[in-house]
Design a binder for these strands. Structure first.
Length: 258
DNA sequence: ATGCCTTCGCCTCGAAGA
């Protein structure tokens, strides 16, 4: 089973890149964030023509998540229980795979804008509700994988300039503690199970030639329960699409399970 | 740096992202 996560920063703009990447990477599951499309405008036919089923929860202009899959989704959710939120950031579903039934949660965690703002408070509250939901999910589903744009760099190793970013948005203590609280439920940051070096990022700002200089952050994560961690054979960041024409500012993160 | 780039909406600039 191969699963990937990719913040595409507008599926309307990025659909050609997504179809190209699907043909090359051949994932069983691809979780997208920031589709920025109303469900009425979602390109379901073109994705199905490429050989994938798809479920989605979107809105105009902002947010929006989708899961492309070889097998059908069941038990789909589009909300965090206990959080009445018009922002479309959550998509959960269960899939049959060659490693058994897998519960998938695709997330676009709020950005938070700046420490101390209303959006930052919303982000921390959202993460607290996520923790409550994951505590239930990890008990209900031994094979749980939580993927997406977490908008948190887990540690200094995940930041090109840790001193410059320390305490700021995406790197503040409260955000990192909220991520730690998710991991403490029994989830693993799968990339770190395979790679212990720094300067491995999943997002680079469009401004200032940051990708060419490899000045980025690792904020797109694949978290797995223990059973899936033990079944994992690889986790990697595919930087190739970030170098394509008209790229997303994020690049895919991929995991394989045997 | 109230900068940089890219997206969207509504309308050619402002807001937001990270």
């Amino acid at each position: 089973m191969r699963i990937a996560t990719w913040n595409v920063n507008s599926l309307n703009v990025r659909l050609p890149q997504v179809l190209e990447w699907l043909a090359e990477a051949k994932p069983d599951l691809l979780c997208l964030q920031e589709t920025k499309l109303d469900d009425e405008r979602f390109p379901q036919d073109l994705i199905e023509y490429a050989g994938y089923r798809v479920v989605y929860s979107g809105q105009k202009s902002y947010n929006g998540v989708a899961i492309l899959s070889r097998n059908p989704a069941k038990d789909v959710i589009t909300e965090l229980p206990g959080l009445d939120d018009p922002q479309r950031r959550v998509l959960g579903a269960t899939f049959a795979t060659d490693v058994g039934e897998v519960r998938v949660l695709d997330l676009y965690v709020p950005n938070g804008q700046a420490v101390g703002t209303d959006k930052y408070a919303y982000k921390l509250d959202w993460l607290a509700r996520l923790r409550d939901h994951l505590a239930e999910q990890i008990a209900a589903y031994p094979k749980l994988v939580v993927v997406g744009d977490f908008n948190i760099a887990p540690g200094d190793l995940d930041v090109y300039d840790p001193d410059g970013w320390r305490g700021g948005i995406l790197c503040s203590d409260a955000e990192r503690e909220a991520l730690r609280a998710l991991l403490d439920l029994g989830l693993s940051d799968l990339y770190r199970g395979f790679h212990d070096q720094g300067e491995r990022f999943s997002w680079w700002d469009y401004r200032g030639n940051m990708f060419a200089a490899n000045r980025g952050l690792r904020i797109d994560l694949i978290l797995t329960s223990a059973a899936l961690r033990d079944a994992a054979s690889d986790c990697r960041i595919d930087t190739v699409p970030r170098a394509w024409a008209r790229p997303s500012d994020h690049t895919p993160v991929v995991a394989d399970f045997a």
